[in-house]
Amino acid sequence: MVINDMAKDVDLAKHYLVPKHSVLSDTEKAKILEHYRITPKELPKIAKKDAGIAHLEVKEGDVIKIVRNSPTAGKSVFYRVVN
């Protein structure tokens, strides 16, 4: 997630508001869907062009794992499907 046309390289993923995003492999994805007994359609969405996943290579239908910093649980895991 580096924007080139600037005086310095800015890695936006390091911003304190941005949680860690990662792409799930197909087996991990199947496991998650099985665990929650849902179809990918029922997951919350994330745009393909979203700035948070600009540094990842994603295609439509991929599931993104997001590890949020939560004030109540410490770390909480959230999933979004790319659309």
């Binding site: 005086a7 911003h15 508001l17």
Partner: peptide
Amino acid sequence: VLKLEFVDEERTTTNDVFEIASVLGVEA
């Protein structure tokens, strides 16, 4: 502003949530 050389790009923020969503993503 994040592009400026003397700005700390990790902590600088705005109160416009839409701007944050478009620059840093929905999760942010």
